[in-house]
Simulated assay, not measured.
Amino acid sequence: MMVNIGIRAHDIEADSLEELVNAISDKGLTSVQLALSKSLKNMNTDSGALSPGFARYIGDAFRDRDIQIAVLGCYINMIHPDRTERNKAMDRFKEHIRFARDFGCSIVGTETGNVNAKMGYTEENFKEQPFFDVVESVRELVAEAEKFGVIVGIEGGVNHPVHSPKVMKRLLDFVESNNLQVIFDPVNYMTIDNYKNQEDVFHEAFDLFGDRIVILHAKDFIIENNCVKTVPVGKGLLNYHALFEMLKAKKPFIQVLMEATKEPHIEDSIQFLRGLYKRSTY
């Protein structure tokens, strides 16, 4: 069984759409997470610019090289303290939902934002009100997704209100819709307190919402100055062997999208993932 590896498109340096798809294809990658504004800088991707024709044009460029747009990345602050800014962000996400299928994509992804306008770690995110603000926004996005047969993929992490697997499960329980699914990035849940028991975090996530995981994000981490620091795949402490054993058993062929992994590390990271996946047991 082969591992199904893709990459976050804006981790590839490219000056044009053609150059981007060729670079991804030449690496043997099968899928991407595409953030329009980050990867298509020479095109107008502002709110209101999308159309079925635009989406089909972009989608065809990837399809012609046998690459699937697995996720449209539209990472917004869905609980922005300024209501006007929050509404703009929500409208942008809904526009991605409306045209996702024209891109050949069924998932639009985001994290859950921040109580502050500027993103970053704050324990204020962990209070009840931010959680219920997230619930309100996710319900609104999922209601739109249900109309278009699209999935809202929510990614949790310690910098956001959905900061643990338990809180992710709580969100899934509050928003009762199969159009809400999970983008699982295990590094996002790593802290100085739990990284030595990271396998417990994996098991907790799979026990609580393994059936709802639709994408795995792959990056890595080290501990530096008593903090978790992100590094390219295979260059850190994440126990991919344990993670892949779970994936093989419970989520075969799930798309594994590398992120925070740029040149000159991409080829090494691909070989690391392929080798480890092949050696992991099921």
Rank of each mutant, 00 (worst) to 15 (best):
T84M: 07
T84W: 09
T84H: 09
T84K: 15
T84G: 02
E85Y: 15
E85P: 05
R86D: 02
R86S: 07
R86Y: 08
N87Q: 15
N87R: 15
K88Y: 14
K88W: 12
K88C: 04
K88P: 10
K88A: 12
A89I: 00
A89R: 13
A89M: 14
M90F: 04
M90C: 02
D91H: 10
R92I: 00
F93M: 13
F93Y: 15
F93L: 13
K94E: 06
K94N: 01
K94G: 02
K94M: 11
K94D: 03
K94V: 10
K94Q: 07
E95Q: 12
E95H: 11
H96L: 03
H96W: 05
H96G: 11
H96A: 14
I97C: 01
I97A: 04
I97W: 00
F99L: 07
F99M: 08
R101I: 00
R101P: 00
R101E: 01
D102C: 08
D102L: 03
D102M: 09
D102A: 14
D102N: 15
F103D: 02
F103Q: 02
G104F: 03
G104Q: 02
C105V: 02
S106I: 01
I107W: 02
I107N: 01
V108G: 08
V108N: 07
V108R: 11
G109C: 09
G109Q: 05
G109F: 01
G109D: 06
G109L: 06
T110K: 02
T110V: 00
T110Y: 00
T110A: 03
T110G: 01
E111A: 11
E111Y: 09
E111F: 10
E111L: 05
E111H: 13
T112K: 06
T112P: 10
T112Q: 06
G113I: 09
G113R: 10
N114T: 12
N114Q: 04
V115E: 09
N116R: 13
N116D: 13
N116S: 13
A117W: 11
A117R: 14
A117V: 03
A117L: 03
K118S: 01
K118E: 09
M119K: 07
M119D: 03
M119R: 10
G120C: 09
G120R: 08
Y121T: 04
Y121W: 14
Y121H: 13
T122G: 08
E123F: 03
E123D: 12
E123H: 11
E124D: 15
E124S: 12
N125S: 08
N125Q: 07
